[in-house]
Design a protein around this nucleic acid. Structure first.
Length: 305
RNA sequence: GGUACCAUAGCUCAGUAGGUAGAGCAAUGGACUGAAAAUCCAUGUGUCCCUGGUUCGAUCCCGGGUGGUACCA
């Protein structure tokens, strides 16, 4: 499996199609927002024209009303890969959601999915007693995890508490971070661009997306703005405009800023992964040639064993 | 042309009884196992507009200049 990762607006979509074309195979998206069919414009999901006839999986396959999470994604992708590897030697996975990429490449521990009723209780606790309420709750249930969590991060605190309650065992004993073995070999590619160029591309793409009707798309999902799928860069800002809190100009400026920050977080995540082979994303043709070379070298390497 | 006010970090601004300065945002670095495009942590040297003067010492007080804003002609 060839994994193509990189920050938003770095040209992953086009590169993945080029590579999939060359190997006559299909593309799996690892983008936690392109799943949702109601929001293709604002998530820069590939259009059918951009796909150039290459089958894409996990793009527009869900509704914003669906419940979904990384472990289900891991399962779904593995099931699909098992089928696809029967006839394809190579598969391409492309996306910018680091956690989702890792779930497929390295696996994720066996832990329960969140229970909606419990989440409600946790929210109630947080609203009534603030972060301190969550802290003391977690300290009681799992003192070991309490020592290592981000003590200010309410989501981590909540998840820790949730797992302890649902399983009756400390979270810290179940979050093992073991790496699972996969029945296929993985080659990871990272697309990199000089900072100024990436920033320029982010800005231009935001303007292009707005020109192509993004605001109308945001308006159409506005009534559901509290759904998690819409807690997303771009939509949050457009919703602030649609609510009358911000001018459109301000919203656009914030979209650009927040997209830049998102790209930075993606890079932080990816840089940590020593298995990534970095390639220059400035020239699309060159990038796809580099990927193909890397894949061929990888195959030859495999043949030795 | 006159009068008043303003000029401090990339931006918006605070401040110093005269002892060379700090917030928010941005930016940068980082964390990350079922909300992940989420969530969270860390990091503040900048000719305090220029130039004379007073002073042991001026970003701060005084004079002049330059630029900006408002009002009056």
């Amino acid at each position: 499996m060839v994994v193509i990762a990189g920050p938003t607006a770095s040209g992953k979509t086009a590169l993945a199609v080029q590579v999939a074309k060359y190997f006559r195979t299909e593309v799996i998206s690892a983008d936690s927002r392109q799943f949702y069919r109601e929001i293709p414009l604002g998530t820069a999901a590939p259009t059918s024209e951009e796909m150039q006839g290459i089958p894409h999986h996990f793009v527009g396959n869900l509704s914003i009303h669906d419940e979904y999470n990384v472990s289900r994604y891991e399962e779904d992708v593995l099931a699909l890969l098992q089928r696809k590897f029967q006839k394809n030697r190579v598969m391409v996975m492309v996306g910018g959601s680091g956690l989702y990429l890792d779930a497929v490449c390295k696996g994720i521990d066996q832990l329960p999915d969140p229970d909606p009723d419990l989440r409600k209780q946790l929210d109630k606790k947080y609203n009534a007693e603030g972060i301190q309420g969550l802290r003391s709750w977690l300290l009681e249930l799992d003192p070991d995890y309490y020592q290592e969590v981000d003590i200010n991060n309410r989501m981590r605190l909540m998840r820790g508490i949730e797992v302890c309650i649902q399983t009756g065992m400390p979270y810290s004993q179940q979050r093992l971070k073991t790496t699972k073995s996969r029945p296929f070999r993985i080659l990871k590619i990272g697309l990199e661009l000089p900072r100024e160029i990436l920033i320029e591309r982010i800005h231009q793409r935001a303007d292009r997306m707005l020109d192509s009707g993004w605001l109308d798309e945001a308006r159409s999902v506005f009534p559901h703005r509290h759904l998690n799928a819409l807690n997303t860069v771009g939509y949050k800002e457009l919703f602030a405009f649609l609510s009358g809190d911000w001018t459109l100009e301000l919203a656009v400026e914030k979209i650009k800023t927040n997209t830049r920050r998102y790209a930075k977080r993606q890079m932080t995540w990816l840089r940590r992964d020593r298995e990534v082979h970095w390639i220059d994303g400035r020239d699309g043709e060159g990038a796809s040639r580099s990927v193909i070379e890397l894949v061929d070298a990888f195959k030859q390497d495999l043949a030795k064993y």
